[in-house]
Amino acid sequence: MTLKASDISEGQEFSEVVAENLTRTQIVQYAGSSGDYNPIHTDEVYTKEIAGYPSVFAHGMLSMGATGVAITNLVGDGRLTKYGVRFVNQVWPGDTLTTTLSVESIREDGGQFYVDLIVSTSNQDGREVVRGSATAKIDP
């Protein structure tokens, strides 16, 4: 599946649920795959008693990775040229995350079409957790 410039328009939005009732186990999986074993993500005892947070919370990079699923599902495999985010709020166990991708611009550079996307992921309360942008090569 490849996105085509002729199939989209500026301002168009695409949404996808990228995590549903996020589990502590998925956060543990992410710790294991990424190698970031900071106990604030997986160790409830440490996180409550030492770090001072109400519970463990997800790695920012887990929310960026999950958000990236919506992006690659839209633009296709191996098409991204840029992807960047700010982590604006923490993601907690039980959160359901929805990513919205807005087409900011469609442009041509040297015969190659690109789409610039505004990227935003929010939790079940509508609170934004990840905000950023992405650029991908697309077909005409």
């Binding site: 074993y37 005892v45 440490y46 030492i50 770090a51 947070y53 790695h59 960026m64 840029k82 992807y83």
Partner: peptide, 25 residues
């Protein structure tokens, strides 16, 4: 520094929560 017999295996570090990730590009 995670929990074992006690909530942390080492003395508490300055900064409380330690470092967090703010942006990635």
């Amino acid at each position: 520094f995670g929990s074992g017999k006690t909530p942390t295996g080492i003395e508490k570090q300055e900064g409380g929560s330690g470092g967090l990730h703010a942006e990635q590009h």
